[in-house]
Computed example of a mutant assay.
Amino acid sequence: MLDIKKIPVNMLEENCYVVSDDTREAVVIDCGALTDDDRRRITDYIEDRRLQVRHHLCTHMHYDHCFGAAFMWETFHVGPEFNRADEPIYKGMGAEIFGPLAQVMKEGLTPAAARYLTEGDDILFGHHKLTVLSTPGHTPGGICFYCAAEKAVFVGDTLFYCSVGRTDFPGGDSEALCESVRNKLFTLPEDTRVYPGHGPHTEIGFEKAHNPYIG
């Protein structure tokens, strides 16, 4: 059984997830830790439970989702794993979105990708496996992480409770985003729990019935 801890971080209340099982192996998804308090809460949770972090997984590379890349590398020795199409965002395109905060990333360490992830790749930890779903739209390289055994999917900013991710940032594509939700997420079992990059969790069946942005 997965133990899923949501830790909202930075000024945008981005959901960083620490996901582990009874082996104490863990993955961290979308570490947007920016402040000392953000980093302390993540470190305390991991150390208190004696977890071994095996991967830092990124659904996309907007800065609010990867402010903590250097922290993850320096503290837990794991580099970010993401889709190659989002590397230009990671390397500097965020200035158009985050303004002065982009300078924080440029002045600090931005660890190289530990692995470029593509559709169908598996991430293994403990007794569990996450499978990569390619879901472009919010960004060109947007991906989601699906655990079929636990009926859980980590979707970043592709899908929210009764909403979807913005597409007015550089590289966004509203048509691609809707296709990603319909063809990748809405084909999952209806009782699959959805863990988004901001806000509360939801379920696939609920979103199919009630999400006003996906016809």
Rank of each mutant, 00 (worst) to 15 (best):
residue 161 Y to R: 13
residue 40 R to G: 13
residue 32 G to W: 08
residue 88 P to T: 07
residue 82 F to Q: 14
residue 111 P to L: 00
residue 134 S to V: 06
residue 20 S to I: 12
residue 146 Y to A: 00
residue 92 G to D: 03
residue 60 H to I: 03
residue 172 G to S: 12
residue 1 M to G: 10
residue 148 A to T: 07
residue 70 A to N: 13
residue 134 S to A: 10
residue 32 G to T: 11
residue 192 T to F: 01
residue 102 A to Y: 01
residue 118 T to R: 08
residue 96 E to P: 13
residue 2 L to F: 07
residue 41 R to D: 11
residue 188 L to P: 08
residue 16 C to S: 09
residue 134 S to G: 01
residue 69 A to E: 13
residue 53 V to P: 08
residue 38 D to P: 05
residue 83 N to L: 06
residue 154 F to L: 07
residue 42 I to E: 12
residue 57 L to G: 13
residue 42 I to P: 11
residue 59 T to L: 04
residue 188 L to W: 04
residue 133 L to H: 09
residue 17 Y to M: 03
residue 7 I to Q: 08
residue 99 G to Y: 05
residue 146 Y to N: 02
residue 56 H to R: 05
residue 62 H to C: 10
residue 215 G to N: 05
residue 159 L to N: 08
residue 110 T to H: 09
residue 147 C to M: 04
residue 178 C to T: 14
residue 112 A to V: 12
residue 15 N to M: 03
residue 194 V to L: 11
residue 44 D to V: 14
residue 206 F to G: 01
residue 189 P to R: 02
residue 59 T to R: 05
residue 25 E to N: 07
residue 14 E to S: 15
residue 37 D to P: 03
residue 130 L to H: 01
residue 177 L to P: 08
residue 190 E to C: 06
residue 196 P to S: 04
residue 103 Q to H: 07
residue 13 E to I: 05
residue 166 R to K: 14
residue 135 T to P: 07
residue 139 T to I: 06
residue 92 G to S: 05
residue 125 F to G: 07
residue 192 T to P: 00
residue 68 G to V: 04
residue 90 Y to F: 02
residue 195 Y to R: 10
residue 176 A to M: 07
residue 36 D to M: 02
residue 88 P to H: 05
residue 66 C to R: 01
residue 58 C to K: 09
residue 114 A to H: 12
residue 52 Q to Y: 09
residue 139 T to Y: 00
residue 49 R to F: 06
residue 69 A to W: 04
residue 79 G to R: 04
residue 128 H to D: 10
residue 7 I to E: 04
residue 204 I to V: 12
residue 5 K to M: 07
residue 129 K to T: 14
residue 15 N to P: 09
residue 171 G to Y: 12
residue 98 F to H: 07
residue 33 A to W: 06
residue 160 F to Y: 15
residue 145 F to D: 02
residue 54 R to H: 05
residue 27 V to W: 02
residue 10 N to M: 02
residue 155 V to K: 01
residue 79 G to Q: 12
residue 94 G to W: 03
residue 163 S to F: 13
residue 202 T to N: 10
residue 66 C to L: 08
residue 75 T to W: 02
residue 167 T to H: 10
residue 57 L to A: 10
residue 90 Y to I: 09
residue 47 E to Q: 12
residue 127 H to F: 12
residue 206 F to P: 01
residue 48 D to K: 08
residue 61 M to D: 10
residue 28 V to T: 14
residue 96 E to W: 09
residue 96 E to M: 11
residue 63 Y to E: 15
residue 81 E to M: 03
residue 136 P to T: 03
residue 113 A to L: 12
residue 36 D to V: 06
residue 156 G to C: 02
residue 105 M to D: 06
residue 162 C to E: 14
